[in-house]
């Protein structure tokens, strides 16, 4: 289980997260929606500590980080290994092939042998439909292919939860489908996922729960069928009207 309690994040004077409380059960898929600047990406980045929260407690499968105190760097690195992150801009390592990108974590962080890492990476690339692109460099791949390598790279660390930060926002429309399909497959396999996205169809079809965030707080959370057809909060209604 993943839980966030009283999460605050401030950038200088700007308060981006104003007390987020959230629990996600193992195996659930949660989609986070909301206008830009609502803090959804920041929340995700706090979960794998790419941003250090100002205060609050995050915990994943019993491991806690309490940011009211000073958290040692060592704890942050081990906590991060529980999460897999997929970035909007892919952030693949350009000097490594698709296969090497995926091998890197198991080999360097988990200290698996090169052979074991290669085997695992190869299987993961097949799983995301890129079995034939293993030796390509990122620059030789389309955006959709790069993002799928990104997903495989995160999966290679066998995380407890996968975090997706607008994974399809940078993609040409015709490439979005392949990435979403991989994500749906993952969801069907029981992977715990938190997905920040503007893909409402994905939210409808794959999410167990949709969370609407605005101005640094969770405004409303509900089943997708409920929140999309019958939103309770005024702000949620307004947002959904604007995007539909």
């Amino acid at each position: 289980m993943i839980s966030i309690k009283g999460l605050y994040k401030q950038f200088g004077q700007l308060e981006v997260l104003k007390g987020i409380d959230l629990e996600v059960e193992k195996g659930k898929v949660v989609v986070v929606i909301g206008p830009s600047g609502s803090g959804k990406t920041t929340m995700l980045r706090c979960l794998n500590v790419l941003e250090i929260p100002t205060k609050g407690v995050v915990s994943i499968e019993g491991q806690n980080l309490d940011f009211s105190k000073n958290v040692p760097q060592k704890n942050i690195a081990s906590f991060r290994r529980l999460t897999g992150m997929v970035f909007q801009g892919y952030n693949l390592f350009p000097h490594k092939t698709a296969l090497e990108n995926v091998m890197e974590g198991p080999m360097i962080v988990k200290r698996e042998t090169k052979e074991a890492a290669r085997k695992k990476a190869s299987a993961l690339l097949k799983k995301v439909g890129l079995g034939d692109k293993q030796d390509y460099y990122p620059a030789q791949l389309s955006g959709g292919q790069q993002q799928r390598v990104g997903i495989a790279r995160a999966l290679a660390m066998e995380p407890e939860v996968m975090l997706f930060d607008e994974p399809t926002s940078a993609l040409d429309p015709e490439l979005v489908g392949d990435v979403l399909k991989v994500m749906k497959d993952l969801a069907a396999e029981g992977m715990t996922m938190i997905v920040v996205t503007h893909e409402m169809r994905f939210a409808r079809e794959a999410a167990d729960e949709v969370i609407f965030m605005d101005q640094g707080v969770v405004v409303e959370r509900d089943k997708p069928a409920e929140i999309f057809t019958n939103p309770k909060e005024e702000r949620t209604k307004k947002f959904l009207n604007m995007i539909q």
Partner: peptide, 16 residues
């Protein structure tokens, strides 16, 4: 900066 973050996100330390 995303390259650092990608490294961190798969559990790397600063040195790695």
């Amino acid at each position: 900066k995303g390259q650092w973050e990608a490294g961190y996100s798969i559990g790397m330390t600063y040195t790695q």
